[in-house]
Amino acid sequence: MTALAEYQRLECPALWRERSGDQRRPVVVALGDATLVITDDRSGRPLAHWSLPAIRRVNPGEIPALYAPGEGEDETLEIDETAMVAALDKVRSLILARRPHPGRLRGTLMAAGAALVAGLAVFWLPGAMVRHTAQVLPFSTREEIGEDLVADLSRLTGSPCATPQGTAALTRLGQRLGLPGEPLHILVVRDGVSGALHLPGRTVVVSRRLLDRYETPEVLAGYILAERLRAEADDPVRAALDWAGLGPTFKLLTTGELPVSATTGYTEHLLTEPPVPVDPEALATRFNVLKVVSGPYARTIDATGESVLPLIETDPGAVGLWEPVLTDSDWVSLQQICD
C-alpha cells in the first residue's frame, strides 16, 4: 500500500548520498504508506526510511528532483522518474493542506474584525456618536441650538410675537410650568404651528390660536406640558443631530459648535411630522405635580373624555388642589402679545 490511493505499489531507481562528501550510490526508492523506503539496488537491503511528512524538496521545479529527509539534513536523494516526483509532490501537498495554518486563521480573524469594524462604522457609529454627543452637551449649547432652530422656524412662521408685558408674562408662565430649577422658554408665533412644538433648550413654541380661542390659560398649559413630556421621551437635540448627520455632529462634539447650515430646513420637517401620542397617565401626573387644572385641556383633546380619562379623573381642580397658571392681568397681556 502507498500513501496515495491510485498506487498499490510505486518504486523507481534513484541516487542516494548518506552524507555530504560521500559518493552517490544507486538505490531503489519505494513509496510506502507513511515512509519512503530506500534499498540497495543490488542486495535489496534497506538503507533508510524517510518519513513522508518530513521530506522536503531542495530544488523545486527542477529535474532531477533533489530531496532531503528534513531541514538541515546532509542526506540527499536524487530522482528523475516523473511518476515518483509527481507522487511525492502530491503527498507533500496533501500533508501541508492538513496541517494547521496559524497565519491563515489570523488572516481570517483579521478580515472578520475589519468587516465588523466597517459594519460598526456604517451602522452603529453614527447613532452612538449622536447619542453620546447629545448626552454630554451643556445646557448653554442646547440653548444655542434651540435659538438657531427658532431662527430657522421663523422663515415659516414669522418672528415670535413680543411685547414688554406679554414677554414678561411668558417668562412667568415658563417658570410656572417648568420643573423646579428647569424653567421653560416659551415663544408665541402667529402662523405655521398648529398647537405647540418643542425645540432644544427647553424651548416650546405655541400657536397664537391657543391664546385667542380659549378663555383661560389652562388649555395652553396642557399643550405646553404635553410637549415637555415628548421632549423628555425623545431628546430634541438627538433628533436634530440625526437630521444634521455625522460630520456636523462630530464637529459639535470636538469644537462645541454646530454649523447653522446643518439644521437648515429641519423645523420644516418637524412641522410636517404628526405629534407623538402622550401617555394620559404620565400627563395627568405632571398636571398634579404642578397643580394645574387638567379638565379644560382634556376636553379640548377629546370631548367625550374616553381617551383622556386619567386627566379628568385626577383633575387637581376637582379636589381643590390647584394653583393659577397665570394672573388675570398676565393672561390678558399674553393674549395681546401678537397685536
Score class of each variant (00 low, 15 high):
G247K: 13
V332P: 12
V117Y: 01
P102F: 00
D328I: 09
L105N: 11
L258S: 06
H198R: 04
P310F: 13
R19T: 10
S20L: 12
D328L: 13
G61R: 02
D235W: 03
T133V: 08
L229F: 07
L246I: 13
T163A: 02
H198Y: 01
L52A: 01
A97F: 06
R45T: 08
D22H: 07
T327V: 04
P296I: 04
R190L: 06
T314W: 13
P100H: 01
V85I: 15
G222E: 06
D41T: 09
V219C: 05
K251N: 00
A48R: 06
G295I: 09
S20V: 09
S159K: 14
D40H: 09
P274R: 12
V292L: 05
G107Y: 12
G201Y: 05
A151V: 06
D74C: 01
R25V: 13
I224R: 08
A298D: 06
I95H: 08
A68I: 09
R17W: 02
L156A: 08
S140R: 13
T171N: 11
R208P: 00
Q335D: 10
L210S: 04
T157R: 10
P69N: 12
R131G: 09
A303W: 02
D315H: 05
L15V: 00
A168D: 11
V91Y: 09
T203H: 08
R208K: 10
W50M: 03
A298P: 05
Q336V: 00
